[in-house]
Design a protein around this nucleic acid. Structure first.
Lengths: 208, 208
DNA sequence: ATTTTTAGTGACCACATGGTCACCAAGGAG
DNA sequence: CTCCTTGGTGACCATGTGGTCACTAAAAAT
């Protein structure tokens, strides 16, 4: 937890510190991020940072908490108008999440990196705090699914969809980072279209 | 490349150095591995390590090259007797690879870590040397597939199978590392059985 | 006007990093 | 018995780390 001092800062300075952290952690990951670079980017002294936050780790988790809360609250407001049919709903929801990452690329990068599997102490702590990556989000989203439509075991099916979504997202993000597309709506449309095609394959099987 | 000095060492010492590196890199990954710990584990002096190898990076890639070559040569010998039907073949091949990782856990860990996606300089160099993770192995394995059996686009289908295998392997390895099963044959059987179930779902679709 | 409180600073700490190099002991050559 | 070559060593180097603390300058309290 940050000290009260931190909250008494004016918004500008507080934002500068947060953004410096987001950018650094998003670029290098927790372990390879440098508090020296962070204070430099934020335009404050080393001493100040450690008066605001008791440690690098605390700083990290405070930021992570803030931006995941932001993500969730932003999405919550939009999930009501989503289609009700399971697969269309998944597609629409994933597209929303993807669009958010595109809109806030630095926050997105930090979140993605924070929940990317790795065996470091900080990742284990992250998982024990928030649960494991998309599993958290998708489980929340899929828990009361009409299991009667599934051919096989529900758990297995859900796990498969999770692997599949993970792979698709990773792949799509890679392609996006290559070609510098800047039209957000068009990107979101492409995402939806591409995901739909794959989803059809998943629903009906890859064999004729 | 190691210096000629390194090859003139007796086998014991050379193995000790290699194993120290494998264990260290497999535990901490390239960036967080320490040459100090490596020389300590290997029982040699810092000076010696850097007389044998010009740099940490060189040491790393030499080891990686050796053990991936080992893996490939070990598997090559067994792929002839594999089933010919595509899916059975994939299952059997994956099980072989899995069993190898179980048989040489430290080497396995290092390989898995080396090819796990991350955005570090060393990962980019690894990819540009060897290509990207399982994609390399599975593409080699899937390139001349009878596309007429597929319902959808060949590329998309293969990519889906790749995501799926990646997820399955990650998941299965996690579960194995939890419960300390030591019977290799039984493990391999469980792997095959579990993968087969999922594969069936993938072939025929998750919906009735 | 003087004292006290307080936010902010940056030189500094102990430690670890990858890498170097002056030195040493041992063995072969003369 | 002397050289001299050579594999091996570990103290040492510059640099970077997360974190501290004696200090300052200015505002608040007296």
């Amino acid at each position: 937890m940050p000290s009260t001092l931190f909250f008494e800062l004016n918004n500008e300075k507080r934002e500068a510190i947060m953004n410096a952290g987001i950018s650094e952690f998003g670029s290098y990951g927790y372990e390879n991020s440098s508090t020296n670079r962070i204070v430099q980017k934020a335009g404050i002294s080393k001493g100040s940072l450690f008066k605001y936050f008791p440690s690098k780790e605390d700083f990290y988790f405070y930021i992570l908490e803030q931006i995941t809360a932001e993500l969730i609250s932003d999405l919550k407001g939009k999930t009501d108008s989503l289609p009700t049919e399971l697969f269309q709903r998944i597609i629409a929801y994933s597209a929303l999440e993807f669009a958010w990452y595109m809109q806030y690329p630095e926050k997105g990068r930090m979140i993605i990196k924070a929940f990317a599997k790795s065996d470091t102490a900080i990742y284990r702590k992250t998982v024990s705090k928030y649960g494991t990556s998309q599993k958290g989000l998708t489980d929340f989203f899929l828990q009361d699914v009409d299991t009667s439509r599934f051919r096989g075991d529900k758990q297995k099916t859900l796990r498969m969809m999770h692997w599949f979504l993970k792979g698709f997202n990773e792949d799509f993000l890679d392609r996006v980072q290559m070609g510098e597309e800047d039209n957000l709506d068009k990107l979101k449309w492409e995402y939806t279209a591409s995901l739909s095609e794959y989803m059809e394959l998943l629903k009906t099987g890859i064999l004729k």
